[in-house]
Simulated scan of single mutants.
Amino acid sequence: MSAEPGTLRPGGRTARVRAAVLRAAGDVLAEQGFAHLDLADVARRAEVGKTTVYRRWGSVTALVADLLADMAEQSLPREETGSVLGDLQANSRLVQRTLADPRQGALFRAVIAAAACDERTAQALRRFYDVRVAEWAPCVEQGVQRGELPQGTDAEAVVRAVSAPLYYALLTTGTPPDPAAADRAARAAHAAALAGVYATGR
Rank of each mutant, 00 (worst) to 15 (best):
D66T: 12
V17S: 00
V60Y: 01
R55H: 12
Q96D: 04
P176Y: 11
A40F: 09
Q104S: 07
V131H: 11
R187D: 12
D183I: 11
D154N: 09
V21N: 02
R127V: 03
A20D: 04
A186S: 01
G82L: 10
S75Y: 09
G143H: 01
H190V: 02
D27R: 15
G143T: 13
V17K: 05
A193T: 08
R184P: 07
F34T: 00
Y168S: 14
S83M: 06
R120D: 15
Y168Q: 14
T175I: 09
L125N: 10
V158M: 04
L76R: 13
G201V: 13
A185W: 02
A188S: 03
A69G: 08
W57Y: 15
P102S: 12
A72C: 06
P176R: 10
R160E: 12
A69H: 13
F108G: 03
L170E: 13
F128A: 05
A155Q: 10
V95G: 05
E31T: 01
G174L: 11
V17M: 04
L88M: 02
R13A: 14
L88V: 03
A19T: 14
Q104R: 12
A19C: 12
T121C: 15
L170T: 04
D70E: 14
L67Q: 05
P165V: 02
L39Y: 02
V162A: 05
T52Q: 05
A100L: 03
A110W: 03
V140W: 03
A124I: 04
L37W: 00
A192S: 13
L99Y: 12
A195Y: 05
A157M: 03
E135V: 08
R184Y: 06
A192W: 01
D70V: 11
C139I: 10
V144P: 09
D101M: 07
L88Q: 04
R55D: 13
T7Y: 03
P102Q: 09
G82R: 06
T52Y: 01
A25C: 08
A164S: 12
F108H: 01
L88S: 05
A106K: 03
T52A: 11
R187H: 06
Q32I: 00
H36F: 02
P150D: 14
V95E: 09
R103A: 08
A122Y: 06
S92E: 06
A189L: 06
Q145T: 07
C117Q: 07
V140L: 07
G49W: 11
M71L: 13
V133R: 13
T200P: 02
C139M: 15
T61E: 15
D183S: 09
G196A: 09
A69C: 05
A69K: 10
W57E: 00
T121Q: 07
A181W: 11
R127D: 13
Y54F: 14
Q104N: 10
E119D: 12
G58F: 04
Y54S: 14
